[in-house]
Computed example of a mutant assay.
Amino acid sequence: MTSKDKEIQSYFGLIEKSVQKLEHIFNDFKEVSFILHGELNITTFDIKELIEEVSISVFRKRNKDINKALIDVEVLTDSQYMTSDRALLKRLVYQIIENVFEHNNYYDTELKITFEKENSSHYRMYFKDNGIGIPENLQKKVFEVFFKGKRSDINVGMGLYMAKKVVSRLGGELNLKSEIETGTTIEVILPVRQLAENLNYN
């Protein structure tokens, strides 16, 4: 650790990067374990507030200015409150929003997020961007663990894999449509959860 030999310092640098990558992988698998086996905590919360909170976190992670973000959130119902597991939904929204901007330009990419309560039993959310799009032959692969497409420099390829697991855990459905040089739309359909007897509003 005290060596001034540049070659030795270089090796230690490579070891540090490898350890950091393994730590990210370990943390992501802990997240997956929580998603699959953790108990659901159903509350009612403000979906616009959650999206704003997540967006700030995504941009802050890369030291980007959230004020320059081209994110538009539209609520197509009378209420912007949602009843579900807030922690799981936050993970879902985070993975989708981060994936959009990591694979495109943070300041040039437009993201339109639409939320609606389709009926008394289901919510529907759309995440539509005008990014580079995903080739048709890769559209199913993006939900596989460790898949990173052409970008080998970002995270460890667990984002949309975890998003899919969250939707499954909540008993919902996730669909993806994409066109090259046009953009990608992710549709999330989630059930309206039964109100708890002692409901927490947060």
Score class of each variant (00 low, 15 high):
residue 61 K to Y: 07
residue 93 V to P: 01
residue 148 K to P: 02
residue 53 E to F: 12
residue 32 V to Y: 10
residue 124 R to A: 07
residue 35 I to P: 01
residue 181 E to V: 04
residue 47 I to P: 07
residue 192 V to K: 09
residue 132 I to H: 11
residue 36 L to T: 09
residue 111 L to R: 02
residue 178 S to C: 08
residue 10 S to C: 09
residue 162 M to S: 09
residue 18 S to K: 13
residue 158 M to H: 05
residue 191 P to F: 07
residue 113 I to M: 02
residue 125 M to Y: 02
residue 125 M to V: 02
residue 78 D to R: 06
residue 100 V to Q: 01
residue 71 I to P: 05
residue 124 R to Y: 06
residue 167 V to S: 00
residue 10 S to H: 14
residue 173 E to I: 09
residue 24 H to P: 03
residue 149 G to K: 04
residue 61 K to P: 01
residue 126 Y to F: 14
residue 4 K to P: 00
residue 149 G to E: 05
residue 178 S to F: 06
residue 158 M to G: 03
residue 50 L to Q: 08
residue 135 P to W: 08
residue 95 Q to W: 06
residue 109 T to R: 02
residue 140 K to F: 04
residue 2 T to A: 15
residue 202 N to I: 15
residue 56 I to W: 04
residue 32 V to Q: 11
residue 116 E to V: 10
residue 27 N to A: 14
residue 84 S to I: 04
residue 202 N to A: 09
residue 31 E to Q: 11
residue 150 K to I: 12
residue 190 L to C: 05
residue 87 A to R: 13
residue 20 Q to M: 12
residue 103 H to F: 08
residue 11 Y to E: 12
residue 160 L to M: 02
residue 133 G to A: 08
residue 70 L to H: 11
residue 143 F to C: 00
residue 116 E to N: 11
residue 47 I to K: 10
residue 95 Q to A: 10
residue 54 V to A: 09
residue 114 T to Q: 13
residue 130 N to F: 06
residue 51 I to L: 14
residue 165 K to C: 00
residue 3 S to F: 05
residue 138 L to K: 13
residue 26 F to S: 13
residue 115 F to V: 10
residue 158 M to A: 07
residue 18 S to A: 15
residue 93 V to M: 06
residue 110 E to C: 12
residue 44 T to M: 11
residue 164 K to T: 00
residue 116 E to R: 13
residue 80 Q to N: 14
residue 85 D to H: 00
residue 62 R to H: 15
residue 196 A to Q: 15
residue 132 I to M: 11
residue 90 K to G: 12
residue 112 K to Q: 11
residue 104 N to D: 11
residue 6 K to Q: 13
residue 70 L to P: 01
residue 163 A to P: 00
residue 18 S to V: 10
residue 55 S to C: 01
residue 96 I to A: 02
residue 154 I to W: 01
residue 7 E to M: 11
residue 135 P to Q: 08
residue 40 L to R: 10
residue 192 V to P: 07
residue 73 V to F: 07
residue 165 K to H: 10
residue 176 L to T: 04
residue 35 I to C: 03
residue 108 D to M: 12
